[in-house]
């Protein structure tokens, strides 16, 4: 049982981070149907901003996280305005290629600007280990922090989407862009707002990743980004609760496969599950199967 609980906790920590990233993916997808491959790189930039704020300017951990959120939100909006907006009416593949281009640009620009070294992320949060049930369950303060921050962020997002005017407008735009426009919603502003919020979430994930794994590196965003995309699809892409569920599910599956079988086959298993899942229920965990109408 020890092993099971240990893996479960590892999986939940990892899953929380996937969920935070997947939220941004899924929001952007919901509103403009774009797989934003640059999302992982926005996370990386957020992580670096947090890193510099703490390591070079001695900022408080939470202040640094806030700063990272602002910086990433700004970057997200700039990317949207410069690279995606001109392509909004010219086919989704062109936008997809642009997203790949932006991703490559930020990765390699990061290598050029920040250097190729792995930078050590300061341990800006007290690290403690807690034990429960006679040591059967061991959990660190970082893992608790990640879970708490993730849950708070999700509640926050839920509040925005359900109760604020912007959130309602976001839902309207994702449901029907033209009708929303006719209702007097400024679609451009709402799309930018979506990018800003999604990118801010990525920044939180980035800072948490940096803290949890103690390093930041220009290529750190790519794989978590890809995995989070898988999580978003698992949950039903475009659906916010789906992204959370998908993130947690993916994290737990990864941890259990590594623990009970082998890391070597972990990614193979994860992607196999994904494909089987897609075949059985193509719209994801929370998606509704809707037949396409003529």
């Amino acid at each position: 049982m020890d092993l099971f609980f240990a893996q479960l906790i590892n999986g939940i920590s990892l899953g929380s981070i996937y969920a935070l990233i997947a939220l941004g993916y899924t929001m952007v997808y919901g509103i403009i149907q774009l797989i934003n491959f640059a999302h992982g790189e926005i996370l990386m930039v957020g992580a670096f901003v947090g890193f510099f704020a703490i390591a070079k300017y001695d900022m408080n951990f939470f202040a640094a996280m806030l700063l990272a959120m602002l910086a990433s939100a700004l970057l997200g909006v700039i990317i949207e305005r410069v690279a995606y907006k001109p392509l909004r009416n010219s086919g989704r593949l062109a936008a997809l290629i642009t997203a790949i281009g932006v991703s490559l640009f930020l990765q390699n620009g990061g290598l050029f600007v920040f250097g190729t070294n792995f930078q050590s992320f300061p341990q800006a949060f007290p690290k403690k280990t807690f034990q429960f049930l006679d040591g059967m369950i061991t959990i660190t303060s970082y893992q608790i922090l990640i879970l708490v921050v993730t849950i708070l962020m999700m509640l926050f997002l839920n509040y925005i989407v359900s109760y604020t005017k912007t959130g309602k407008a976001m839902r309207a735009v994702s449901y029907d862009k033209d009708a929303a426009l006719m209702m007097g919603i400024n679609v451009d502003t709402i799309i930018s707002a979506t990018f800003a919020i999604g990118s801010a979430f990525a920044a939180v994930a980035g800072v948490l990743l940096g803290l949890y794994y103690q390093t930041v590196h220009p290529l750190m965003g790519f794989m978590p980004g890809l995995k989070a995309f898988v999580a978003a699809v698992l949950g039903g892409i475009g659906i916010i609760p789906g992204a959370m569920a998908g993130g947690f599910l993916l994290g737990i599956v990864e941890a259990l496969v590594s623990g009970y079988w082998s890391t070597n086959y972990r990614d193979v298993v994860v992607f196999l599950i994904l494909i089987v899942f897609l075949i059985v229920k193509p719209s994801g965990l929370f998606g509704k199967d809707t037949g396409e109408k003529v």
């Binding site: 240990a6 590892n10 949890y212 990864e254 941890a255 590594s258 623990g259 890391t263 070597n264 990614d267």
Partner: peptide, 20 residues
């Protein structure tokens, strides 16, 4: 014995296995 892959940052699951 266990392998990790390039992009891995999470080693606790395997290390827990080693410990046990």
């Amino acid at each position: 014995e266990e392998g990790y892959v390039d992009a891995d940052q999470e080693f606790r699951p395997t290390l827990t296995k080693f410990r046990d």
